[in-house]
Amino acid sequence: MLYQPDTYKIEQDLSRFGRTGNDTFIPGATEEGLRQYRRLLRNNINNTMVQAFPISRQVLPDDEWNELINLFFANHDAKTTQIWKLPAEFVTFVKEKDYATLWGKPWLNDLLYFEWIEIEVYTMPDIEAEPFTLQGDIRNGTIVVNLEYRLIPLRYPVHLYAVEEAKNHPGDYFMMVYRHPETREVLFADLSALDTFTFENIAHEQLSLSDIAAGLKLQFALSDQHPLLINMIAFVQEMMAQKLFLGYAVERKEQF
């Protein structure tokens, strides 16, 4: 670093003023120009967050929203070089500072996370799925998953209710957010605990539905796995139609 200490301090003071609006003195600087920088910098941050979190912006009163933006910009050292990814850092900041509790809005973390995940899934790098065929054995075949997804747990059902209502229904919710492979639109599915368990075993263990049902029967000493299997088949059929599951794995031939 070849800056002299005073040059460094001038840049630092300008930066801090831009982030906080707190009084500063910079030799030669005009008050109007400094105010303009504060306005431009803060607008960039605010506009990015308004675009990313339209629902949160709508449900938070102006003073709370503006306070969040000011606190975030002043206190959080933004890491990403890509401003459109900054909302992910905003979600973490709000969660770590626990404004949900401080402001009596227990749904706040879930709502911000839910809104960000839609952007994340919409923009995430393309991930090629395993080769698949549309014909297969739904009970015993290996089901191919569309890998462009995020499965998020929520404490409050902000995807089902307005926030004031959602806070009356705390529970264990599982939200599947994924990208349609052809239209590239983001789709949402509210999964039950059994759906989530089934999905995780298909996605991460490559287990067939029969294997998953058999495992559950053993684990819980069930007398009959058939009702479970029927539920799982219905889930997979539905989500195959919705392109969360793409089809059945193509058998790989041994190479000699």
Binding site: E11, Q12, L14, L41, N44, I45, T48, A78, I83
Partner: peptide
């Protein structure tokens, strides 16, 4: 500045 991106162009 100070390891924080500002997302605008400040004068040197």
């Amino acid at each position: 500045m100070d390891n924080a991106h500002l997302y605008d162009l400040l004068p040197i």
